[in-house]
Amino acid sequence: MNDNQTRKGLVTVFGGSGFIGRHVVRALARNGWCVRVACRRPDRAFDLRSLGEPGQIDVVQANLRSPQSIAAALEGADAAINLVGILIESNDQTFADIQSQGARTVAEAVKEAGITRFVHISAIGARINSPSAYARSKAEGEAAVHELAPHAVIFRPSIVFGPEDDFFNRFAAMARLMPILPLVGASTRFQPVFVDDIAQAAALALDGKATPGAIYELGGPEVKTFRELVQYVCDVTRRHRYLVPLSFEMGKLMASTTQIAGKLSLGLFPKLLSMTTDQVELLRRDNVVSDEAKASGATLEGLGIMPQLIAAVVPAYLYHRRKVGQ
């Protein structure tokens, strides 16, 4: 942004130091916002300042368990984005604490601050009656946001991919080590979405280009089964691996075993091989944009964004997983 351009205001981004957050912060800075990144460990996020001009991006400490810190992070802000979420529970971080009560805490602070531009990131599959604790907590978080900040725009992305993702990178690493890759929910369908497309959507929402109070489902241009996605990883990394579909019952047994192994090993069990029973429950349902979202235009395309193809992005960061690189 040139010096003679006027900044749009100050936006506080909760969870801005995470995978999606870093891309959102960069998109907002490029779009003319001053950005305040609120996270638990500011010392691990100071590098985000380099994504903007001097003084454009700041990092502050905030914890969802401390409403005072959330309120302080919103002081003087014109807009807010909540990206905080976890994929796996730990002793000090549960789905209920982070994605349900945490979302409520942020929404309450946003309401108290009188902020009307608010974006909340949820996930496709969020359902109050879901057998998955992850999906239920996401739905509870959405309900809290709707209750306290009815003007908020909620985004539900499918699997998110990008250079630092935990999906394509994870299976590429597994393919390097394992001749056989077991797949639970091999026929479950996904609609992977590029992280920069989500970041662009967030920037557009703060500019008033999204319908206030609406829920948008964000997916890429391709719908693929779990098996097809893992096979694609093997093809790109040139690894010939056997993909073995497993039943959900067998998957839950494996997940229970890895969870027990993780506890008994005091956290030393390889994260790469870990799986939870809750993740198995998530794999029972397709993770794609609904027909209702398409019909109402509550999609990336409805925001004027042409989503990126997997093949246009993923090979660029999986090449190094090949035996001989590029």
Rank of each mutant, 00 (worst) to 15 (best):
V11T: 10
P179M: 02
A175F: 01
I159M: 12
T94F: 13
A45Y: 09
G9I: 13
A201Y: 06
C234F: 07
I98A: 11
R26A: 10
P212V: 06
A298K: 06
N91E: 15
V160R: 05
G213C: 07
V37T: 08
G18N: 03
M250A: 09
Q191E: 04
T257K: 15
V106E: 02
A62V: 03
A143V: 01
A126V: 00
D3Q: 13
V11A: 07
T105N: 10
L87R: 13
T116Q: 13
Q101V: 08
R104T: 04
D197C: 03
R127K: 07
E108Q: 14
S100E: 04
L83N: 00
T211N: 01
A123E: 01
T237A: 05
A214S: 04
I128Q: 10
A79E: 04
A107W: 07
T276K: 12
Y134L: 00
V280L: 03
C34H: 14
E108K: 10
A126Q: 04
V280K: 00
V289D: 00
R65Q: 11
H23R: 11
P42C: 08
G219Q: 06
V324R: 14
R41E: 14
A261Q: 11
D235V: 03
P192K: 08
G213D: 06
V119G: 01
S132V: 01
S50Q: 13
S274Y: 15
V145G: 04
Q56T: 09
R284W: 07
M1V: 15
F190Q: 06
Q326L: 14
L273F: 14
A126D: 05
S90D: 15
P42F: 09
A96C: 12
A73D: 03
L318Y: 09
A103N: 08
R238Y: 12
R239G: 03
L272A: 11
G52N: 10
N31C: 14
V160Y: 02
D286H: 06
V84Y: 10
V153M: 05
K294N: 02
A113M: 04
A205G: 07
G102H: 05
